[in-house]
Amino acid sequence: MKKMSKSSRSAFINYGIVLLFYLVVQLFISQGRVSSSLMGQLVPICVYVIMALSLNLVVGISGELSLGHAGFMSVGAFTGVIVAMSLKNAVPAGVLRLIIAIVIGAAIAAVMGIVIGIPVLRLQGDYLAIVTLAFGEIIKNVLNCLYIGVDGHGLHFSMKDANSMNMEMDGTVILNGPIGAVGIQKLSSFTAGVVLLLLVLFYIQNLVNSRNGRAIKAIRDSRIAAEACGLNITEYKLKAFVTSAAIAGAAGALYALNYSTVVPKKFDFNTSILILVFVVLGGIGNLRGSMIAAALLTVLPELLRQFQDYRMLVYAIVLILVMLLTNNEEAKALVARISGRFRKSKAVQE
């Protein structure tokens, strides 16, 4: 076998993990061992893994803290729903409609990414974080009072209420303000989620190891040095930001088409934070880590169901403890000493 570089070997391990996960889950499903609550979590797992990968591109690779990532997810989600519902008659095939919805969701989210990115990326550090947070809230707020419907003449918009759209009798309301989108036809499937995940993984891994990716990482490590080398800072930062927004939009469309109703409130600040938690717990800039963290933490509240009321409390405590154990120097030294002793005693036994 030809010798592979370290980065491409790591990339293939990641594809392997995803495929293995898919096959194992399919095997369990065919044996009927997967509970219905876990079945319902399969598409969200894919969605959150994709979201974690997408945010890792901004936080890990580009080194900018974004607190409004759910906003892009939201844009993609509602665009996807609108596309899927208005093409109901034109494109009967569900899979094709899902693909179109995801592509257009990603495109609109990318446009939002450009609109937001150009002013925002001039700021740095905590200021950038707060502005992305503000944008996420604005998107949520605007979607909360936006009414969109479709009839024979095309799409109708209103900011007041559903009646003021002046639709024909046969028209259907797609987005109903704070109630959100209702009556969505379920198009997403676990297989579609895994396919999208593999595509995203392929794209991000190639991007990171490309000329663009190296430039983005150089800017993260030293903005001044990179600028002195002639890199256009804004251009590369914008590239990373917009790519990430587009991926989040695609994930949002996949997510929304998995449920019959979606409310704008779902994509609030807490969702952005949740995704950030995946990225930080998995290791900033580490794609595999954030994938595993996203999958585990999406399932964790389900697994903690036996604790019932205490499960979010346990989640919070686990989160704090993991952060303390992985980031405190004394704790790190302690863990290293214990694992060192463990290894030593194993060696003695052998």
Partner: peptide
Amino acid sequence: PLRNASSLAVLITAIG
């Protein structure tokens, strides 16, 4: 305990 850790780690702990 996180006085010398990265600011993101502290942020996530605060969220916790």
